[in-house]
Design a protein around this nucleic acid. Structure first.
Lengths: 205, 205
DNA sequence: ACCTGAACACCGTTCAAGT
DNA sequence: ACCTGAACACCGTTCAAGT
């Protein structure tokens, strides 16, 4: 049993059945090994999840095309992280639930901080801004994948009805006006809006 | 057994031992009841968690003091949500893992969208901006509480050493410059920086 | 109407013993 | 050195039967 295969197999299992169905026993079975054997390679399930989170970020810090403005560089890097999380079912949850210090994760942050420093920000401001961007991406993608999961579940009609019923204009006047946007599935648009807000804030400094 | 007591007891158990230790059986024992009894009041554990998330937001949408600028109103509302999540151990994880459509959650979003509309934003722009702010808060607080948990765990020295060792200026030049900020515990400062970036972006529209 | 007792089908993790 | 087999101490959820 090799560690890299175990990690990619674990990601495949998550893609097939969701994070809640990933168990050490199921992974062991998929690798044709006893459950206990996994603990020779991963100290705990958390360690396995961190390795999965790290693997998901492969390529995210790759070289940026030449000739991009700093705005485009930030947009490109942010888009890559979002896509990396979206590529696997429950990817944002896997990422948010762990704290990887592997090379993919580290070089992604390094690259993002670098782009921000080139705009003239101090190391501290660049780091805080990078954190802001990453936190927004993770929060956004968590929500995006939760919406995806809900859309595929049987609870969708019930939730939508409940939401719609709650949207009494007398009680929640702004929510009534927001309903179309809240129930829209234009996550690309939502993501771009949020990221542009942050980028615009940056330009104002 | 009453539902409100069950929810507050569940939150107390989370505060004492963390979210991973909250089980239906432990909660049942704390309520002096059999585990099966809980399923008469909550269809699944997810339902219980959603009720806990909803309870955490009590008061968050309360009236804003008079005379605040819109910037101050946004800052006040954002700070309330962050504080509500911080008030309970693993609060951000509880919130992020559920999708409440209860009155506390709905009226919080309603209030935030309302403040943003008053700045002149369209319903769509106001809604998207509210989502951006909430996603940032959730992403930030998830990280903040993960750092808290790490700080209280025995893995802290190992992680810090690993991180420091990885910070070779030749490999990660920007991370080396970012280390002080990345390892700082000034989460109030980080939060203010991110939120101000978004608010500044808003002012530019 | 509400709760108990007991079961079903699982978990993560550990560790002696085998090869 | 690496894996198996088996166990330990749990899980979420269901449901007949009691009161």
């Amino acid at each position: 049993m090799a560690v890299p295969e175990a990690v990619t197999t674990a990601l495949r299992l998550v893609d097939e059945d969701g994070l809640d169905s990933l168990t050490m026993r199921r992974l062991a079975a998929a690798l044709d090994v006893q459950a206990g054997t996994l603990y020779r390679h991963f100290a705990t399930k958390q360690t396995l999840l961190a390795a999965m989170a790290e693997e998901m970020l492969a390529g995210c810090a790759g070289p940026l095309p030449d000739g991009l403005t700093w705005r485009e560089q930030i947009t490109e890097l942010a888009g890559r992280l979002r896509m990396a999380l979206l590529r696997h079912r429950d990817g944002a949850r896997v990422h948010a639930g762990t704290h990887s210090v592997g090379p993919n994760t580290l070089s992604y942050t390094d690259t993002l901080v670098g782009v921000l420093r080139e705009t003239g920000l101090s190391p501290e401001a660049a780091t805080r801004t990078a954190l802001t961007i990453v936190h927004f991406i993770v929060g956004h993608t968590l929500e995006e994948q939760a919406a995806q999961a809900l859309a595929e579940s049987t609870e969708l009609p019930a939730t939508l009805t409940l939401l719609h019923a709650a949207l009494d204009p007398g009680t929640y006047p702004n929510l009534a006006a927001a309903e179309a946007t809240l129930t829209s599935t234009d996550f690309v648009g939502h993501f771009a809006h949020g990221l542009n807000l942050i980028i615009k804030g940056l330009a104002g400094e």
